[in-house]
Simulated scan of single mutants.
Amino acid sequence: MRLDGVDVRWPGAAEPSLKDVSLTIPAGSHVAIVGPSGAGKSTLLALLLGFLSAEKGSAQVPDKVAWCPQEPQLVSTTIRENLRLGSPDASDEILKQALTDAGLGHWTDRLDSLVGMVSGGEADRLALARALLAAPQADLVILDEPTAHLDVPTAKAVLSGLAQNLKGRTLVHVTHRPEEAADADMVIRVDAGRVA
């Protein structure tokens, strides 16, 4: 992915949220995006996801993206059907492996259970499992604070499993945890609409 002199503006905004951004993300790299709230991280993700276009400059972004959003949207149906949003034809064995890889191994016998009331951490991990299922068909995997609702040991275990599963894939991971950013190949800091 390559951005050259890019400005990005949300519809109706007076000023661009990102200004004069130039960066290259090598294929197969793990990139951590860090920065304070309101700095432009969500705008950068919206550009990479194709939700926003560059107002100025040029942006080469992937066609197919697997995405685990910061606020996962779960459907009021079974765990199996929620997972199959990421890969409609996945076998039960593949679904169970995705649950295990996302730290929900204790759910592998609950594929026919309704999602119902789940904790924030469980919702995050279910959305993460869904993104893992979509990852093999994607050019880019974006994880937007996937460990925000997890304690440090659980977050570390989940991310360790992800690193193995997504080896060779381009991964962009938004985090507020310095120890997570330290494991990335590249760290991008977004602050006041600028990228370093």
Results as ranks from 00 to 15, higher is better:
Gln60Phe: 03
Gln60Cys: 03
Pro62Glu: 07
Asp63Pro: 03
Val65His: 06
Ala66Thr: 12
Ala66Val: 13
Ala66Phe: 12
Trp67Ala: 02
Glu71Ala: 03
Gln73Arg: 05
Leu74Pro: 06
Thr77Phe: 01
Ile79Trp: 01
Ile79Thr: 00
Arg80Tyr: 06
Glu81Arg: 12
Asn82Ala: 01
Leu83Gln: 11
Leu83Ala: 13
Ser87Glu: 07
Ala90Cys: 06
Asp92Ala: 04
Glu93Ala: 14
Ile94Tyr: 05
Thr100Gly: 00
Trp107Thr: 00
Asp112Trp: 08
Asp112Leu: 13
Asp112Tyr: 09
Gly116Ala: 09
Val118Asp: 01
Val118His: 00
Ser119Arg: 07
Gly120Ala: 09
Gly120Pro: 15
Leu126His: 13
Ala127His: 06
Ala127Ile: 11
Leu128Pro: 14
Ala129Cys: 14
Ala134Trp: 05
Ala134Tyr: 02
Ala135Tyr: 10
Ala135Ile: 11
Pro136Gly: 11
Pro136Asn: 13
Val141Arg: 07
Glu145Lys: 04
Glu145Ser: 08
His149Ile: 01
His149Gln: 08
Leu150Thr: 07
Asp151Arg: 14
Asp151Gly: 07
Val152Phe: 03
Val158Leu: 06
Gly161Tyr: 10
Leu162Gln: 12
Gln164Phe: 04
Gly168Val: 13
Thr170Val: 00
Val174Ala: 12
Ala181Met: 11
Met186Lys: 08
Arg189Thr: 12
Ala192Asp: 09
Gly193Ser: 12
